[in-house]
Simulated scan of single mutants.
Amino acid sequence: MPLLRLLHRWTGGLIGLLLALLGFSGALLVHEDAFLRATVPHAADAQRQDAATLAAMAAKVFAAEDRPRSIVLATQRLGLNKLNYQTEEKAAYANQDGEIVQVWTSNWERPEAWIFDFHHHLFNGDAGEIVGGVLGLAGLAFVLTGLILWWPTRRMFHLPLWPRKMTRAGIVHHHRDLGALLAPLLILSLATGAAMNLKWFSQALRAPFSSPTTMEQASAPPKIKGGELAKDLNWTKVIGQAQARFPGAEMRIITLPAKPGGLIQIRMRQQAEWLPNGRSMVWFDPADGAMVASRDAQSLPLGSRIANLDYPLHAAKVGGLPYRLVMTASGLALTLLGALAVVTFWRNPSGRPRRKLGREPSR
C-alpha cells in the first residue's frame, strides 16, 4: 500500500495539471453548440434535410473557386453547415443555403476550434493525439489506484463541494471522496478518450467481440476508381440516391474526392446510430453521380459498432441535456481533482508530515 500511495501521489503531481486542463476543456466542448447558437448568425436555424435544399446548397458551395473538400451538415441543435478546406486549419460556417457566415484560416480565430485542438491534439497534431491518449490511460490508473487507497477510509466518506479546510489533510480527504463518488464517470470519460486516440487500445478493448483484421476490412473504402469531377454534377440525383439507399437517415457529411480517381462520399446517420455523423456510407462516381457502393453501419462487426459509441458517450452527443450536465460534472471533477493533486504534491513532495519549528526546550 505505501508503494501504491507513492505511485498515486507522483502520478497526480506530475500529470495532474494536464488532466485538469483536459477535463475543463472537455466540459466546455460539451456546450459548443449552445455557444455557437448564442454567438453566430443562423446557428439557431431549424435543420433542413429535404433533397432540394441540400442539392442546391452543395451545388453552390462546390461551384466556388475556392471550394471546400467537405461539408458537415447542420444538425437539430446547430443550424450551420461547416466547410472544411484543403488547408488544415481553414474552415468556415455557412447557412443552409450555402452563404458563408464566418471564415477563418487559423484555429486561434475561433474559440471552439482552438479548445478542440487542445483537447484532442494538445496543439501538436498526431503526436499530441497520442500523448493525449497516454494521458487518458494514466488518468485511468490514477482513478483505479485512488479507489484502492480510498477503500480503507470509506466509512469516513463526506463530500462538500469544496474542501472544508485548505490544509493538506483536508484537501486529500476531499480529493479521495470526490474521486470515489465520480469514479464511474471518470473511467467512462478517460477510457473512451484513450480509445479514440490510441488505435491499439481501442482494438484491445474490442478484440473479445471482433478481431482487428475483421474490423479494418469492414471499414475499408471500396476499391473502385472514379472519374474526373464533373463541373455540372447533378447533386439532386446524388442526394436522392443516398436518401433512397437509407430512407429516413440523416445526411451528415458530403466529401469530394481527395485525389484523382477517388469517389464522392456521403456519410449518413440512421436512427439507431448514436454517432452524430453516423457510419452509414454511400459512394458515388464524381463523373456522373452514379452510386457505386454503400455500407450499412448496422451491419458492421460488433466490435466496430461498440467502437462507434466512444465519441457520443465521451462528448455527450446522446442523452440530451441531462447527460450533457452529467459529463460537464465529470469534466469539472477531473479539473478539481487534477488541480488539487498538483497543489498538495508540490507543497510537500515527500508526503511526510512536516514538523513545526520551535525553540529547543531548556535543560
Rank of each mutant, 00 (worst) to 15 (best):
I148L: 15
V131Y: 11
N124M: 14
H119A: 01
N84W: 07
E88H: 13
G132E: 00
V143T: 10
L80C: 02
P111N: 05
H119P: 01
W150H: 11
A113E: 13
Q102R: 14
H175G: 01
K165V: 12
W151P: 03
H158K: 15
V172Q: 11
F123P: 00
A92W: 01
V143K: 06
Q96I: 04
H120K: 15
G125M: 05
G79D: 00
L144V: 14
L147G: 04
G179C: 03
I130N: 02
M166G: 10
T145N: 07
I171D: 02
R176C: 03
W104Y: 11
W162P: 02
F157M: 08
N95M: 06
T153G: 13
K165M: 09
E89C: 07
E112V: 11
E99I: 10
R164W: 05
H120A: 14
E89M: 06
G139M: 05
L137F: 09
L181F: 12
L181C: 08
V103W: 11
F118S: 05
R155E: 09
L78C: 02
E109Q: 15
F157S: 11
L147A: 03
G128V: 10
R77E: 15
S106A: 14
D117Q: 11
T145F: 09
V103E: 15
N107F: 12
L147F: 02
E129Q: 15
W162D: 06
L83D: 03
A169W: 07
N107T: 12
H119V: 02
G170P: 00
L137S: 11
A113S: 12
G125H: 06
A169R: 15
R164M: 10
V103G: 13
N84H: 14
G98F: 04
G125Q: 07
G125A: 07
A180D: 08
N84S: 15
I171H: 01
V143M: 10
F123H: 13
F118K: 10
Q102I: 10
R176E: 09
R77Y: 13
L144I: 12
D177P: 01
A113W: 06
Q96S: 05
V101M: 01
G79N: 01
V101H: 02
K90M: 14
L78T: 00
L140G: 05
G79R: 03
A91L: 03
E129Y: 13
K165P: 00
H120M: 15
I100E: 14
V101E: 03
L137D: 05
E109L: 09
L135Q: 04
I130E: 00
Q86V: 11
A141P: 13
Q86E: 13
T87M: 14
Y93V: 05
